[in-house]
Design a protein around this nucleic acid. Structure first.
Lengths: 202, 202, 202, 202
DNA sequence: AATGAATGAGAATTCATTCAT
DNA sequence: TATGAATGAATTCTCATTCAT
């Protein structure tokens, strides 16, 4: 029961933070959306900032763990990157609110809390970095500025959370495929091309 | 003189809105940063939201006008897109605060003001859309989902405002070049490739 | 307990609004007079305007209900009017602040709230109108302009709230009697005269 | 020219003070309505309170002087009262805004200014008092509480400013006549009655 | 587990007024 | 005569948070 309530609070926060931003969301709205009194809210969330950090950490943890698992044992850099891109895109399409919050509200966090969130994000981005670096090292990727490319691709994929709608004509799989394709092309890995066909099993 | 003060206010706002968000910025901070009393502030800015909308409109207007001018008379779709990407990237690198605000704080605007800003943004994005569509129509670009690709590239370029530092190792020209390169690749226009070499004069 | 506080707030407001007008009364004064912080004040009153409208509606409701009850079953127009005048005068003498507020601060209300208050007032005035009209119809009253007379008498009675003091030499009953007498005279009902004598039992 | 401007300011103030009250009217509205900058406003009005007191004094002065003149040499108490009532009613009908301000905004004045206004008002009311007292002394009026009657009649007449419209069916003369009639009746002077017919010459 | 009551601090905005020009 | 610029103080109202119950 307590768990349900806690979950209700979290969902209310995700909805509101994503819609109006952290500072744009008041405790009262949060309480109302959670069907709780403001006082009760504090029983579940600690402070408003705790709640935000919690949401961010959970989302990043999920992304990080599933990415690490998906990539485990995959040695081919192109496949690794494809896997990462698809997972990233799908996660952003499926949880646009949570991911939007992670991607855009980090700056409101107090330094201490920011550190814990940023370190998770850095850990996640290291997976991308490793894949790109490996691909470059093996000559599979051809890009003048691997670091820049990596961050550019990440931002490109983050954007999905801003606009993708499951009601649109594009399926989640096709979306992920397309982004993976763009990423490989941007990395100069397109000629070896057959990536698209092979990645179906994911 | 009045102009100077007004400009001071605008710069203070740009700095603070970009650093802490619209809702995270108080008018007291704004006044302090502008070296004005809060009351005097209102002599120059109308409301806080007016100030925000003003910054956004000015920034978009600049981007839109210079993009339209840069693209005028350029018929080759690849060159048009290259031009747009470079301008976009450079603007985001040079005015990261203004562009960050435009890209991230639209949701705080009141419906009426939002409309005026969004319509400017839409007008700008149409330039991208036209270039992409033209390229696809002429078979210069090869992409399964032109609309998605366009938005993905835009988001990729927007990201520049978040991380680029002129103190880094990459020059503005190189940065723009690299992004243009990635964009063309993502659009499947890489084979014609010599774009990089030709665009030097820009 | 909560009720006590709410009542304290209401009384503070009645006192201050009557003394300095709605716009002349600040919420700080209101809070101080209520022995509450300004923030706590809002726990009880909604907005300042809500508080005002509340006071007005309560006062009018009281007046309306007691007038309707007092007049119920009274068929003689002269007696009906006498009853209304006396009740009106006594209410204004006993609750000079509330009635003064109703009579003088309606114009500060927002249209929506104004409507709700005005409709109550209209309903109340209809009681007067009915009595006057009935008297005229039966030839008991003799006045060239019944509508004007009715409003003139109402204003005359409203005035009581401005000056009557229970510390003066006139008792409430005598005051009411005197006003009823003036009203009947103004309506040309004096000749039947014995009204004064008969109304003693009230 | 200066006079015109000064007059414009005064009229703007009369309009706004009557519509929204003194405290409900801001300096900026006043300036806008006067087609002046707020700074220029101060050139003409002194302080906001000065302006208010000025309006009140002028209005009362006018009323007082014309009443004194109209009543001069009139010895018959009934005629004197009739004259006062008619003048009062007509003034309130013709200058509803000014008279409303005088009748309702005295309480916002600072003690010192209030005194000067109140003393004018008292002087004016003395004319009424004299007429009533004289009538009572001579047995022309028959009222149990002359003082109360006088104030009741005054309030009744003040009310005209609240509702009379020249666009209505009642002419100013008829209106004044009717009020004078009601006043005499309330004072028990109706039997001698012919007052109505005789007062035509006024 | 839940909440009504309470609050200090702060929110954005307007106040009446002054002054240099 | 006129005003743009400036402001300290006040405005109404909301903030996130605590606490006694």
């Amino acid at each position: 029961m307590a768990l349900d309530t806690r979950e209700r609070v979290r969902r209310a926060a995700v909805k509101l933070f994503a819609a109006k931003g952290f500072h744009g969301t008041g405790i009262r709205e949060l309480a109302q959306e959670s069907r709780l009194s403001t006082a009760s809210l504090y029983h579940y969330m600690g402070s408003k900032e705790d709640l935000l950090a919690d949401i961010m950490r959970t989302c990043l943890r999920t992304l990080l763990d599933s990415a690490a698992a998906a990539v485990e044992g995959v040695t081919d850099p192109a496949r690794r990157l494809t896997t990462l891109v698809k997972l990233h895109v799908k996660t952003h399409a499926r949880m646009p609110k949570e991911t939007w919050i992670v991607d855009n509200e980090i700056h409101v966090l107090t330094p201490a809390m920011r550190r814990s969130v940023v370190s998770l994000r850095d850990e996640y981005e290291r997976l991308w970095d490793d894949a790109v670096s490996a691909g470059v090292a093996r000559g599979v990727f051809d890009t003048a500025h691997p670091g820049v490319t990596r961050i550019a691709l990440l931002e490109m994929c983050n954007g999905v959370a801003r606009w993708y709608s499951p009601r649109g004509s594009l399926s989640l799989d096709d979306l992920a495929e397309h982004y993976a394709d763009m990423a490989l092309r941007a990395l100069g890995a397109c000629p070896c091309g057959s990536a698209e066909g092979q990645s179906r099993g994911e």
